[in-house]
C-alpha cells in the first residue's frame, strides 16, 4: 500500500507564449494538508486544473490516488472534491438547493454523508432558504465547501478558498480543514496568504510556474540562510533607504511598521547595525534579532531566483 495520494512529475503547461507551469514535481502524502503558496500567476490554478482532469499537461504526468489524471479521468472525477477559485455556487439557488444539486450530480445521499459536513453546514443551516448570492463571503465559502464534500471525496482540492475572506472566516475555515484532515481526507490547498503556510503539514512555495521550495513549514524556515533582524522606527522610509546602503546587508524589506534586515554573513550582528545607524545620526529605533517567518523565506527564494 502506497502512502502517496497525489504525485506530479515534470508538469509543464503553456498557454501560447505564457509558461504557466515550468516542469514541477511534488508528492502529497495521504491524509495531509498540502499547501501551494504563491501569488497570482504562480501557476497554482493551472496545476489544480491538471490534477482535477480539467486540463491536459503539455508534458509530465500526475496521478491522484494512483489514478492517472489523463487516462483515468472518468474514475478520478468520482473521487475528487473540487472548489474552484471563485466559489462556484449557483447564486440564484438557495443554500439548500445548491447542496441538493451537487449531491444529485454525484449521486450522493445527503443524509448518509451529512456527518462529514455537519460542523460546517450547521453554521449555514439557519439560512437554508436564502439564495447563495445573498450570503456573506464567509458563508458562501462554507456552502461551497459543503457542496464539494457532499459526495465524500477521497481528495479535496481547494483553489484559493480564503481569498477575499476576512481574517475571522479564514481562521474558522482552517479549523474546518483540520477537522476534515482528521477524517482521513487528503487536502490540497492553494493560497496567496503566506501566514496560512504554517497551518499546512507541508507546503510548496510557488512563483512563475516553479516550485521554489517544499517541505514542512519548519523545514523551510530552518533552511533560511541568513541572520534576520527587525528594526522599528518612526521614520520607516528614511531608515529603509539608509540601511540598504550598509555593507554586509543582504536585503531590507518593510514588514508592517518594522523593517526586516537580513545579513549577508554571520559577522553582521546587532552591534554592527546599531553602529552603522548611529554613525549616520539615526538614533530612535528598536532593534532585535528574530527568527524568520514563511514570508521572509518566500522573499529570499524569490530574490535568489531573480539573481540567477
Amino acid at each position: 500500500m502506497s502512502d502517496i495520494s497525489v504525485y506530479g512529475e515534470g508538469l509543464v503547461k503553456n498557454y501560447g507564449k505564457t509558461e504557466a507551469l515550468r516542469g514541477i514535481s511534488f508528492l502529497v502524502n495521504k491524509g495531509e494538508i498540502f499547501g501551494f503558496i504563491g501569488p497570482d500567476g504562480a501557476g497554482k490554478t493551472t496545476l489544480f486544473r491538471i490534477l482535477t482532469t480539467l486540463l491536459l499537461p503539455d508534458a509530465g504526468h500526475a496521478t491522484v490516488e494512483g489514478f492517472h489524471v489523463v487516462k483515468d479521468f472518468r474514475h478520478l472525477r468520482t473521487i475528487l472534491g473540487y472548489m474552484p477559485g471563485r466559489f462556484s455556487l449557483y447564486q440564484d439557488l438557495t443554500v439548500e438547493e445548491n447542496l441538493k444539486f451537487f449531491a444529485g450530480i454525484f449521486k450522493a445521499d445527503i443524509s448518509e454523508n451529512y456527518y462529514l459536513i455537519k460542523d460546517i453546514y450547521d453554521q449555514i443551516a439557519p439560512f437554508a432558504k436564502r439564495r447563495a448570492g445573498k450570503l456573506s463571503g464567509g458563508m458562501k465559502q462554507k456552502l461551497a465547501l459543503s457542496c464539494a464534500l457532499i459526495h465524500k471525496p477521497e481528495v479535496l482540492i481547494l483553489d484559493e478558498p480564503t481569498t477575499g475572506v476576512d481574517a475571522v472566516s479564514r481562521r474558522e475555515f482552517w479549523e474546518m480543514l483540520i477537522r476534515l484532515k482528521n477524517q482521513g481526507i487528503t487536502i490540497l490547498v492553494a493560497t496567496p496568504y503566506m501566514d496560512e503556510a504554517i497551518l499546512c503539514d507541508r507546503v510548496a512555495l510557488m512563483q512563475h510556474g516553479n516550485i521554489m521550495a517544499s517541505g514542512t513549514p519548519d523545514q523551510i524556515i530552518a533552511s533560511y540562510p541568513h541572520r534576520l533582524f527587525s528594526i522599528k522606527s518612526d521614520q520607516t522610509l528614511e531608515l529603509l533607504s539608509l540601511i540598504r546602503q550598509m555593507t554586509g546587508i543582504h536585503s531590507a524589506e518593510m514588514f508592517g511598521g518594522n523593517i526586516h534586515v537580513s545579513a549577508s554573513n554571520a559577522l553582521t550582528g546587532i552591534k554592527e547595525i546599531e553602529d552603522f545607524l548611529r554613525s549616520h545620526d539615526f538614533r530612535h529605533f528598536e532593534l532585535e534579532e528574530i527568527s524568520p517567518g514563511i514570508e521572509d523565506c518566500f522573499i529570499d527564494f524569490m530574490k535568489m531566483n531573480q539573481a540567477s
Partner: peptide, 11 residues
C-alpha cells in the same frame, strides 16, 4: 461563473 468547472469535475 465557474460552475462549469465543478460540473466537469463531477461524474
Amino acid at each position: 461563473l465557474g460552475t462549469m468547472e465543478v460540473l466537469l469535475v463531477s461524474p
